[in-house]
């Protein structure tokens, strides 16, 4: 008995940190988030461009910015986000068990995931695709020239599957060299352990940047898979799904209209056209269906910027943290510039 009570006391610290009970069972995710006062947003373990830690321990990146935009829309405060960083193995479970409110991490939208995991994909905030990178001095100009080549690839990912599919389709007889750890894969490639390396093109850009001489490597033009990435929510809460979806749309629409973080308040005070007035909450009540305040779009743009600003900051070539993926001519350009970024109208 004595030992047992000792054991019980030993768990005292656990009890003192304990279980924070007391959150009443609420109906919708929005109510839960409002009551909790903070958005729980799931990101992955650090990946350049999308979500990373800085030396001060803050999260930043393009997927992180989506989390902050949602928090800004709800609370008018982009810091009211609790980031949950879990490995990709448990990402869907952490959504299903209610741990996270929204998943904003490089997750490819597929039919299977959308229909069989109890989750809903909202929309696409980044169009990625798998490509190849080779040393420049090999003179290879197209991935169709990779006949019989050894290719470094991460195991257990769709990347590996896409590679073998592509090899079979085009009779390339590619030999995959598989790795568990991306750093080891990149080191092997840099030391000539394989002829080419394959991954999503966004990751290839940051892989290239870690080599002593990035100029010695070239990303081949072909894109062999479609990887539309976007935020994911739990199924059967359409209001919450609408909030997340229209937050992304608001970012895109704002860029299309030329509204950015520096001019959004001036624009709201003096909207250029009726659609802008509706979107910025000056006219009408578009916010009602979402359960947000009238100025929700103003809050988002004011705190986080529009889609273009986010892209330049983290993915593009201008920002301090940017990983250098050109936007022009890619699917991530606005539809008015030949890309796929297109928001339904705000009316």
């Amino acid at each position: 008995m004595k030992k047992l009570s000792l054991l019980g006391l030993g768990l005292g610290m656990l009890a003192s940190l304990g279980v924070t009970a007391g959150e009443a069972a609420a109906q919708s995710t929005l109510d839960i988030v409002k009551q909790r006062g903070v958005l729980r947003c799931q990101v992955g373990t650090p990946a350049p461009g999308f979500y990373q830690l800085d030396e001060q321990g803050n999260w930043y990146g393009s997927d992180v910015a989506i989390c902050r935009a949602i928090a800004a829309a709800i609370f008018d405060d982009p810091s009211k986000v609790e980031f949950q960083s879990v490995t990709s193995a448990v990402r869907f479970t952490a959504m299903a068990n209610g741990e996270s409110d929204v998943l904003s991490r490089t997750t490819t939208w597929t039919l299977f995931r959308d229909t069989q995991l109890g989750l809903d994909f909202t929309t696409v905030n980044f169009y990625d695709g798998q490509g190849f990178m080779v040393p420049k001095d090999t003179g290879i100009k197209s991935s169709l020239e990779l006949k019989g080549a050894t290719v470094c690839v991460l195991t257990g990912t769709t990347t590996e599957l896409n590679l073998t599919d592509y090899s079979r389709t085009n009779n390339l007889d590619i030999q995959p060299v598989v790795f568990e750890d991306s750093n080891v894969r990149d080191d092997t490639f840099a030391k000539g352990g394989c002829d080419a390396i394959t991954n999503d093109k966004s990751s290839l850009a940051s892989t290239r940047a870690k080599f002593p001489n990035p100029g010695d490597y070239v990303v081949l033009p072909e894109t062999i898979s479609k990887e539309p990435l976007g935020p994911v929510v739990r199924q059967n809460d359409s209001q919450w799904m609408d909030i997340v979806k229209w937050t992304v749309f608001a970012l895109v629409q704002a860029e299309e209209m030329g509204i950015d973080s520096s001019n959004v308040e001036a624009m709201a005070a003096n909207p250029a056209n009726p659609e802008m007035a509706r979107m910025l909450g000056v006219e009408g009540d578009l916010n009602k269906g979402l359960g947000l305040e009238k100025d929700w779009v103003v809050r988002i743009i004011k705190h986080v910027g529009n889609y273009g600003e986010i892209y330049d900051e983290y993915m593009g070539e201008k920002g301090k943290f940017a990983i250098g993926i050109p936007r022009e001519g890619s699917p991530n350009a606005l539809w008015t510039k030949g890309g796929l970024m297109y928001s339904p109208p705000f009316r």
Binding site: T45, P48, Q52, S206, A209, K210, I323
Partner: peptide
């Protein structure tokens, strides 16, 4: 997803300033 010593050590390589 607990940021213990190992995960922290790994996180550095994904930071653009210390990429790789």
């Amino acid at each position: 997803g607990l940021y213990d010593l190992l995960l922290m050590l790994k996180a550095v390589s994904q930071n653009p300033q210390w990429n790789g």
